[in-house]
Design a protein around this nucleic acid. Structure first.
Length: 630
RNA sequence: GCCCACGUAGCUCAGGCGGUAGAGCACCUCCUUGGUAAGGAGGUGGUCACCGGUUCAAUUCCGGUCGUGGGCUCCA
């Protein structure tokens, strides 16, 4: 412990080195962000953090959470505080309120109380204290959750309190210098949240809010949220007539309308072709199977709460499939396999059904019935590394072909509940990491996040609100070959056990489609657009030529429509533009006379006059699916 | 599943201190044949999610159910 004499405040350190100015809100000291008034060793390295730096907003929002908790406790005495961190886009604080949870109606009052605290510009003060003193303080306040938290702080760690005005919280900071820095704050919603994130614990009342250094930043943030709502796949799904979910059928069960189904089939066609070109064979399997299959696979043991109840078939229980793997394994086992056959790569667009709790359903992103673009690779142990590299490159090639370039890659390691030998897990994890490293992409680690049968790599793509959704997954599996007693005959004439790789590139077609709708804001690229060319006539004399052009385009597999209704040209164009059709083509007297067209591109606007043949060739070329770069 | 909110025409939404409802768009009919994002007129369309309760009377108040939205938990 440095003696008090050897320490100086961060602000003083900055000032003596000429690094301080009025827009500095904190500083980076070593690896940590510290408040200006924190005392640190006089020879510490300090880097100022200005209000415009990316870290600054996190500091501000955490301070806003304190101001929120202060306001809540003043307005609602008896409410206990728990945790209140800054999060992406804002902050929250979880409360235990004896009278019951907060509602939307409570927010305006709390928000105005917060603004009073902000107007008083109270300084945030940091205070180091002893464990016993902290325990006594929160016990005297009746703060059971804080009291519990103190006991969880590791021995030897400094316990700090933060005060503004007469409100105090157990908190490690850092905070902005004073409440006045929170120049724009807005409480956004209430929600339930379990204490310590565990569904077995008491549900607390969470208040969400956001805060900024300026009103302009807050307004820009709110505008971004509005824009995101316009891209929401549920909204676009309705506006563009792509799909629906109807309660007479059931939540989480998707009806694909003609346009959505068309896009889906285009995705699947591309997928199928890519697989055939990259060493896969296609297989197909039923939707239900006898319960015994799921006992062998272990799904009933590890997964039963996410599977639907058995149905009775002449006295034998059958279960609708939550996964495709046991079927593919059964195909493998249909006859004796030689090492010469491996690797076997079997793919299927397999529709599976999983029980999801009602509160978890979300448009196409979280459903109860979905089609996995599944494949299982049966390989010899010595093929693990090369096959994993192949799979990972194939995944990234497909995702890039559909227009995605930014991914979060994560390696999930052995969970508490697992089958198989730990040394096999270690080998599999190392092989997965090596495969990712070979692509040069950064990779996070979810310790203990693997499936019960093996470690995995997940690739996530973000939706319009920045939420990352898992799509691709590559999972190694030592367990199922064991459980199903899979074998192949090696070059030594002896029986060996294959290794299995489960992988999905798009994940679920439903989820991938949703993410794609949001990614393109409904404006599908030419090759995927359900309607590629909209021919609109100026007057009734132009219908015949328009229909002839449509027939020519359709003959070249271009998806063209004719609008020769009695509406005015402007209205027809507007209608086609709202459908986000890549080309709107105007046909009037000039075009009929010259056998030309006047296309209007979704991206580049009016294209002037173009000859019919030239336009057809151009559109056909643009409608070609992208080359798969693996 | 849990917490909060919401559920009025195909869609987006008004409205009602309890007396069975309205707009715009869409749709249908007619007029208009108009050159790059909405021509005009008329019309159809609602058991106000569902089930119960209170009341002379409920779409409105109360309770429950279902569904949806935002979170939590979980997850492709």
């Amino acid at each position: 412990m440095t003696s008090l004499e050897g320490r100086k405040s961060v602000k003083d350190l900055l000032a003596e080195r000429g690094l301080f100015d009025p827009r500095v809100i904190a500083a980076r000291v070593g690896d940590e962000i510290r408040d200006l008034h924190t005392l640190v060793a006089a020879d510490s390295s300090v880097v100022p953090i200005h209000d415009s730096d990316p870290e600054a907003i996190w500091v501000l929002r955490h301070s806003a959470a304190h101001i929120l908790a202060d306001a809540v406790q003043r307005l609602h005495p008896g409410t206990q505080v728990t945790f209140g961190p800054a999060v992406e886009g804002g902050f929250y604080y979880d409360f235990d309120r004896p009278e019951g949870p907060f509602t939307d109606e409570d927010l305006p009052k709390i928000e105005s109380a917060m603004k009073k605290t902000i107007a008083r510009d109270l300084p945030f003060a940091r205070e180091e204290t002893s464990r016993d003193a902290a325990r006594a303080l929160f016990e005297s306040k009746g703060e059971k959750y804080k009291r519990e938290h103190i006991d969880d702080i590791p021995e030897g760690e400094t316990i700090t309190l933060y005060r503004h005005g007469d409100w105090v919280d157990l908190c490690e900071g850092p905070h902005v210098p004073s409440t006045g820095w929170v120049r724009a704050v807005k409480l956004t919603s209430v929600a339930g949240a379990y204490w310590r994130g565990d569904a077995k614990n008491r549900m607390l009342s969470r208040i969400y809010g956001t805060a900024f250094f300026s009103k302009e930043d807050l307004d820009a943030h709110l505008a971004r949220i509005e824009e995101a709502k316009r891209r929401d796949h549920r909204r676009l799904g309705k506006e563009l007539d792509l799909y629906s979910i109807d309660e007479t059928i059931g939540g989480g069960l998707v009806l694909w309308h003609p346009k959505g189904a068309f896009v889906r089939h285009l995705i699947e066609d591309y997928w199928r072709r890519a697989h055939l070109e990259h060493g896969y064979d296609l297989v197909a399997s039923p939707h239900i199977a006898r319960t015994g299959l799921w006992q062998i696979s272990g799904h009933l043991g590890f997964y039963a709460d996410r599977m639907y109840s058995p149905m009775d078939v002449e006295g034998t229980p059958y279960i609708v499939k939550p996964m495709n793997c046991p079927f593919h394994i059964t195909i493998y086992k249909d006859r004796l396999r030689s090492y010469r056959e491996l690797p076997l790569r079997w793919a299927e667009l397999g529709t599976v059904y999983r029980f999801e709790q009602s509160g978890e359903l979300h448009g196409l992103l979280r459903v109860r019935g979905f089609t996995q673009d599944d494949a299982h690779l049966f390989i010899r142990p010595e093929q693990i590394e090369t096959e994993l590299v192949r799979v990972v490159r194939f995944v990234l090639g497909i995702l890039r072909a559909f227009g995605f370039t930014e991914f979060d890659v994560e390696l999930s390691t052995r969970p508490e509940k697992f089958v198989g030998l730990p040394e096999n897990w270690d080998r599999a994890e190392a092989a997965l990491r090596a495969a990712i490293d070979s692509t040069g992409l950064p990779c996070g680690t979810d310790v203990g996040g693997g499936a019960f049968y093996g470690p995995k790599i997940d690739i996530k793509i973000k939706d319009c609100l920045g939420r990352a959704w898992q799509c691709s997954t590559v999972q190694l599996d030592f367990a199922l070959p064991e459980r199903f007693e899979m074998e192949y005959v090696g070059d030594d004439g002896k029986r060996h056990r294959p290794v299995m790789i489960h992988r999905a590139l798009l994940g679920s077609i439903e989820r991938f489609f949703a993410v794609m709708v949001e990614h393109y804001a409904g404006a599908f690229p030419m090759w995927l657009a359900p309607e590629q060319v909209a021919l609109v006539t100026v007057g009734e004399a132009h219908s015949e030529y328009a229909r002839e052009v449509a027939a020519i385009l359709q003959g070249r597999t271009i998806r063209a429509t004719v609008d020769d209704s009695s509406s005015k040209l402007g209205a027809k164009i507007r209608s086609a533009v709202l459908r986000k059709v890549p080309y709107v083509v105007v046909i009037g007297d000039k075009e009929v006379a010259a056998r030309s067209l006047s296309p209007r591109s979704r991206e580049a606007g009016d294209q002037g006059s173009v000859g019919l043949d030239a336009f057809v060739e151009r559109v056909v070329a643009e409608a070609r699916p992208p080359r798969l770069e693996v």
